[in-house]
Design a protein around this nucleic acid. Structure first.
Lengths: 166, 166
DNA sequence: CCGCTAGGTCTGTATTTCGGACCCAGGGTA
DNA sequence: TACCCTGGGTCCGAAATACAGACCTAGCGG
């Protein structure tokens, strides 16, 4: 029977969420991106502020560079040695909504009575910035009004799950 | 000197992004939340679809329950054994924008020429759903127009970094 | 009371992370 | 020229995690 398409008929790993998490879904990558957004660009500064070991920092930065989220630049300040620095690419900057959403959630659910440890301000108006669901047609979108529809392109790549369910 | 407050003067771990990632910032938690959003609620179904080992699934579910993102419910279908199932709490559902943002990024940067493996549809209008930065005053917010301002409450809890920079 | 099944726990191995020692290159400076 | 300093790493052994898969258990139908 060709019943309605089920989410579980599709390979988890094909999903864009899974594929994105393969690049940034570890303990450190998103924190590094956060610091890169906030103007921390040098190896030792990242290490000191984020609190990651040198070893892991090297690997993560290499991974982010491979993934095209970060670029390594050599630069030199007049009269000093050449240095390396790390900067977000356009693709890296496109992850901003993920970070803002994580921050908004933490501000709402983890700060208790205190003021949140930092705020994102809309330059100009001064209002707090968060993220909101938005639809192409610019309607306001409530949480409930979202439906996930797996498409054919995912089905084709399905392996493990389709075999098990057959 | 009381120079302008620097991002690096604040303890990384106090940040709402870091604190949120302590709950969901590992390889599996967000994938589990994704499946819970999509109607997968039983232990074995989660294990099979997400592809996580039983061991780790047990630990992650326990962590998510501890964190208040997920609740465990015992239920029974007429004439069958009692079963356990896992459901998002309100706090868990509030992470939806994080997942949508990850998915939107993947759709944009990882799908190449093919159609994305799934789409989020706005029930009713049928348009695609993504996330957008939004400010309190409902202005449209461009990426650039966001400024991070650490607040005093973060400073107070600062430890490692303030000692090093003094 | 036997077998089946969902939901786990246990175990041994493989991988990752951690902290810290070490290394290297390229300036300044003497 | 030799030496020192510093940023940006690599290397190492110990500890923590993840993994696959075997095993356990509660309850229902037969």
């Amino acid at each position: 029977m060709t019943a309605r398409v089920q989410w579980t008929d599709y390979d988890s790993a094909t999903c864009s969420i899974a594929r994105t998490l393969e690049l940034v879904g570890d303990r450190w990558s998103l924190l590094l991106l956060r610091d890169l957004f906030n103007g921390v660009h040098r190896f030792d500064d990242l290490r000191g502020h984020v609190g990651v070991s040198r070893d892991v920092l090297t690997k993560r930065l290499a991974g982010l560079v491979d993934a095209g989220l970060v670029e390594r630049r050599a630069y030199r300040v007049e009269g000093e040695r050449g240095r390396a620095s790390y900067h977000l690419t356009g693709a890296g900057k496109d992850l901003q909504p993920v970070l803002v959403a994580l921050m908004a959630w933490g501000d709402r659910h983890l700060t208790g009575d205190e003021a949140p440890p930092a705020r994102l301000e809309h330059v100009g108006c001064g209002g707090a910035v968060t993220v909101a669901l938005a639809c192409e047609e610019d309607h306001p979108v409530a949480r409930r009004d979202v439906r996930l529809l797996p498409t054919e392109s995912a089905r084709r790549r399905t392996s493990r799950v389709s075999a098990a369910s057959g």
